[in-house]
């Protein structure tokens, strides 16, 4: 969360913001970090900075795979028992996107 804060402060300063009001983050739905705790850590770390009291808007990113057989891109869920390509039913696929953390945008005054 310190990295999130540092990145927000950097962009806030570059844009001569007085205060950061909200922070839009994209987080993999496979991440173990819970939004409630991310907000709590952030509140603690951001005390005394322009990002104090900023609200984290956390959007979960879906995990997207691509079928090795037919090239179809599809989403998989943690609850899927036997994931497969919805198009050709192949079980051979590889990772496309949906991992990691991204800072999308900031609302500032």
């Amino acid at each position: 969360m310190q990295t999130v804060l540092d990145l927000c402060l950097k962009h806030g300063e570059e844009n001569q913001a007085e205060k950061i009001v909200s922070i839009h983050l994209k987080v993999s739905e496979f991440s173990d970090l819970q939004p409630e705790w991310m907000q709590r850590y952030f509140n603690h770390l951001s005390k005394g900075t322009m990002a104090e009291e900023a609200k984290l808007k956390i959007e979960k990113m879906p995990l997207v795979m691509q079928c090795n057989e037919c090239g179809e891109e599809f989403r998989i869920f943690l609850s899927d028992k036997t994931p497969h390509c919805p198009d050709c039913l192949s079980k051979k696929y590889h990772y496309v996107s949906g991992k990691g953390y991204f800072l999308e945008n900031l609302e500032v005054i």
Partner: peptide, 18 residues
Amino acid sequence: MKEIKLIEVKEGILSEND
């Protein structure tokens, strides 16, 4: 009331580490 401005960042949080 001051106007709220949106700053588009679109940057990976761990990009420095990456």
